[in-house]
């Protein structure tokens, strides 16, 4: 009996393989599984869970409070790249957790024989934020106001300068100096963030609440950065 079943199974298999080989010429032009389209997703721009990466650019407009050195007006910047997870608590309110990398560049005024003098500060920021949305919307990010606070950790600092040497008796024409691991930069910091977003376009304002420099030098760097951000979506 068992052998008969095996023979039947083998015949059906051979038959199916035969037909399958015959039907190789057929091509499926359209195949739709309707059930897959009728499941309510938990992930999305206005769903329970949402991930997005983002890129931000800001200008640090302030000035250092000392006479010994000055920042070039409007040339200090901050680049940010990160991603966030949004959890929708209720229709207008969500909480967010963000992890980002930031590169702050402070451009200092220099004597005429210097091409630049620049302080680079690399940090990672772990942020918690509250987002309040305005207006009815579908599955979009919508318009929102966001307030958050982040703990930042500086993992790399570099002071760069380039001096032009206008001396025919010297072989090289410029002197580049790079100082790393600057001891006067505080590693842990914390920053307040405020944002106004309209879908993927975001206006940002970040205000560092802690001093970036310690007592080794007598001034601090400006704490405010104003800029924009582009969310790439999840």
């Amino acid at each position: 009996m068992k052998s008969l079943i095996k023979i039947k199974f083998a015949l059906v298999t051979i038959g199916l393989l035969f037909f399958a080989s015959i039907s190789e010429a057929q091509t499926i032009e359209l195949a739709q599984d309707v059930n897959e389209d009728t499941v309510i997703s938990k992930f999305g721009k206005n769903r329970k869970h949402y991930f997005s990466s983002y890129f931000g650019f800001g200008i640090t407009p302030g000035q250092v409070e000392t006479d010994s050195i000055q920042l070039k007006s409007g040339e200090s910047t901050k680049l940010t790249y990160g991603f966030y997870y949004k959890y929708k608590v209720a229709e207008p309110y969500s909480i967010l957790f963000a992890l980002s990398y930031g590169l702050s560049q402070f451009e200092f005024e220099t004597p005429d024989d210097f091409k630049y003098r620049r302080l680079n500060v690399n940090d990672v920021e772990l942020e918690f934020a509250n987002r309040i949305n305005f207006g009815k919307r579908g599955n979009t990010i919508g318009n929102y106001l966001e307030l958050g606070i982040s703990g930042d950790y500086v993992f790399g600092t570099k002071l760069l300068s380039k001096q032009i040497i206008d001396d025919p008796t010297v072989n090289h024409k410029a002197r580049k100096v790079e100082l790393t691991g600057l001891s006067y930069i505080n590693k842990p910091n914390y920053t307040a963030h405020a944002r106004f977003g309209s879908n993927k376009y975001v206006i940002t304002a970040d205000y560092r609440l802690s001093d970036l420099t310690n007592d080794d030098i007598n001034f601090d760097l400006p704490p405010l950065t104003i800029g924009f951000r582009l969310d790439f979506g999840g």
Partner: peptide, 16 residues
């Protein structure tokens, strides 16, 4: 009475 799946197949395949 709802469709679960639907297909359009070219019986000629590449011949088409």
């Amino acid at each position: 009475g709802y469709l679960d799946k639907y297909f359009v197949v070219n019986p000629e395949g590449d011949k088409g």
